[in-house]
Structure formats: C-alpha cells, structure tokens
Design a protein around this nucleic acid. Structure first.
Length: 375
DNA sequence: CAGCCGTGGGG
DNA sequence: TCCCCAAGGCT
C-alpha cells in the first residue's frame, strides 16, 4: 500500500514521526488566532473555552480565517457565553451574522445554543454527542472533541484532505477519496495533543500545502510526502469536474419614504433564509420581462439606478435596480420600513447591500465609530 | 445522496 | 479578469 511510513527503509520516518514533525512545526510557527489557546498555555494546563471553540468552528465552515475574525470578536462581545446567546433573539443573531454567508449556520447556531443552555450550559465532550446537535456535522464534532476536550478524533476538512492526498499520493478524485483518507488519517492522530495535531494539519494546508503552488521546501513533512517524492504534489488532489454556473436575472426595487427604505423578510428556509431584502422579482434563468419596471410591486415613478452582479454557490445573479420615492403607506405582512441611518445593523446579505448601494450610494456603510474626545 | 446553501481573497 | 475554493451541514 502507498504508505510513506511502511514503504520506506528502516531508519526513515514512521507514522509516529509524521505527527511529531507536524507538532514541532506547529509549535515553531504558531499562528495567533482569537479563538486559539497557544501551545505554551495548553502545556501549562490551560483549557480552551468550548463555547469559543464551537463558535469559531461553526463560523469557519467553508469560510476563511480572515473573514471570520471580526465576526468572532463581535459575537463574543455581544454574547460572551452560550447562555447569553440562548437568551438572544434569533433575528439579532441573523443581523450579527449578515455578510458571513451560509445563513442556515446562524439559525442552527442559535438552536444549538438553546439546546446546550437548556441542558445546563456545558457542551457535550464526545464526538457522538456533539454530532447530534444542530449545525454540527462530522468535521465540527471531531474538531470540538479534539480541540476543546483533547479527544483523539480524526478531523478531516478540505485542508486535511489535500494534505493527505499528497502525503499518500492518492489519485482517487475527491470527494470519493475521503473513504481512503479517513482510515489513514486515523492512524496518524496522536493520543497526545490531538487538538494541536488537527489544527497543525489545517494550518499546514492553509499556509504550506496550498491548493496551487505548494511551498514544499518549507514543509515539515517533505521527507514523508509521497507526492513530493514522485514530483507532482501540485497535481493532487484530483477533483471531480465542476459544473457550470447558470445566470439568473431579476429586478430589485428600492422604495424610499421619509428617510426609510422598504424591506421584507425572506422565508426561514432556502436561499438567504431568514434574511432581509428589498422587494425583488423572481430570479429566473429566462429573460421573461422580470428585469423591467413593469414587474415592480406597484405603479410609481421608477428610475433605473444601475445593475449589480453577484455570484452565489450555484448560480450568478444579475439584478437591475430601480428606485422611487413615495408617500409612506401601510405595508403588507412581512414588510417593514427601515431607517436609512440604521441599515448597517439590518440582516442584509451582501447581495442586498449591493443592490441598495446601487440606488443609494453609502447607505449601507457602517458609520465611523465615535472618536474618543480629546480633552 | 446529490443538490442546495454565500462570500471574499488569492493566484 | 476570471477562476479557484475555503476549518461543511442539511435534506
């Protein structure tokens, strides 16, 4: 079998050495992150706060570290523990999550906090129990179990998949290759410092064993890596071919009245579930007239103010944006008037902020934080 | 179980 | 500019 440990002569790295190489590198190149406890403090007996670990791992699902940092800080400031998050209104959680994407995560976050708080406020400390909570799947359960509770779980995310595919020269395309990778990964997980091992694997994938142009000369596993031995690490992992993104079009309608904008709440499930939006037409693949002012929710003096483009996971959206100024009227169910001065605090997804900006430049910008007075 | 679900940064 | 794809989970 393609094992870099067993395929080598005696005296060369063993499986245990791979974890050792990695942890040594991790200690020497430790990244300070807001949710992380440095190895030095861990060695001194400090334990990570499970609430912090859980919150960060949910935010980090399919999301980059840099995007998560400000949200993590904001959430901790607003809801410092799981009980305070359980006491929060779901709509306030959606507002705080706005811009981070994958909004079902925010809804599940709140649901999970409710369950944990109702159970006494302590997170479960086993993979199996964690897995039963909303928003926690195989990756997140393993990550929390190992990082927060020191359990030797196999933490497998996109980074780990890539590192492992190269380390063992696995040519099976992802995601099928996961079935081969998991048992190999399990043999690597050390009983000591499993949480640091998991984070080290992910750090390695994020900074050294990158998707393109991996920095193999800096890699702590370069002596262990089968793909590097064969000379083609950048060709792995193999991925199933991506399918083309269709284009959908529609129109968005910015209705202004006396310093406020008309918004409505989207259904809890589905695309942008539970978030707010300006009234729009349907978003259709065909060009069936949905991009003209004729499709507006009511007759008015509509001015076309621009158009925006936004890329979702599985389609690209082009919205033509119209604007009008009217007398305030009583709004239908689900609609509300939002003062323009408070727009930055609304639960507006990025695509809606773009649409509003096209009609009212600067409307969704966060106002500058008040300067400290100089005496 | 395959399709659905956002967004931003890097190459 | 365009393409890649992230510390995945749900249904």
């Amino acid at each position: 079998m393609a094992s870099p440990a067993t395929s080598r002569k005696s005296g060369e790295p063993s499986r245990g050495d791979i974890a050792q190489h990695l942890l040594r590198w991790y200690d020497a190149n430790h990244r300070e992150l807001p949710w992380r406890v440095p190895p030095r403090q861990l060695a001194a007996g400090a334990r990570p706060n499970p609430y912090h670990v859980w919150l960060s791992e949910i935010m980090l699902q399919q999301t980059t570290v840099e995007a998560v940092k400000p949200y993590f800080r904001k959430f901790l400031e607003q809801w410092p523990d799981v009980e305070s998050l359980a006491d929060a209104e779901t709509d306030d959680v959606m507002k705080a999550w706005a811009g981070l994407g994958y909004y079902s995560r925010a809804r599940n976050l709140k649901a999970c906090a409710d369950l944990v708080a109702a159970g006494g406020g302590s997170f479960p400390d086993t993979e199996k129990a964690l897995l039963s909570l909303p928003g926690i799947g195989p990756y997140t359960a393993a990550a929390i179990a190992s990082i927060a509770f020191g359990r030797p779980a196999a933490v497998m995310d996109g980074n780990v998949e890539r590192v492992m595919a190269r380390l063992y020269a696995i040519a099976t395309p992802l995601p099928d290759a996961k079935a081969e990778i998991r048992p190999l990964l399990e043999t690597l997980v050390p009983s000591e410092r499993p949480g640091d091992f998991a984070q080290a694997m992910m750090d390695l994938g994020a900074t050294i064993c990158t998707p393109r142009r991996p920095r193999c000369m800096l890699c702590p596993l370069r002596e262990d890596c089968l793909a590097l031995t064969r000379g083609d690490p950048e060709l792995l992992p193999v991925r199933a071919p991506k399918l083309e993104k269709p284009l959908r079009r529609g129109a968005a309608f910015v209705v202004l009245s006396d310093g406020a904008i008309l918004l409505r709440k989207r259904p809890d499930k589905g695309l942008l579930g539970g978030m707010s939006e300006v009234p729009t037409t349907g978003w259709t693949a065909r060009n069936d007239g949905q991009t003209s002012a004729d499709a507006a929710p009511f007759a008015a003096n509509w001015k076309k103010t621009g158009s925006i483009s936004h890329v979702f996971t599985h389609f690209t959206l082009e919205l033509t944006v119209f604007r009008t100024e009217i007398q305030r009227f009583s709004v239908p169910e689900g609609h509300f008037w939002a003062p323009l001065t408070g727009l930055h605090g609304e639960a507006l997804p990025t695509v809606m902020k773009k649409a509003i900006e096209a009609a009212i430049p600067g409307a969704t910008r966060k106002p500058p934080s008040p300067r400290k007075r100089v005496s």
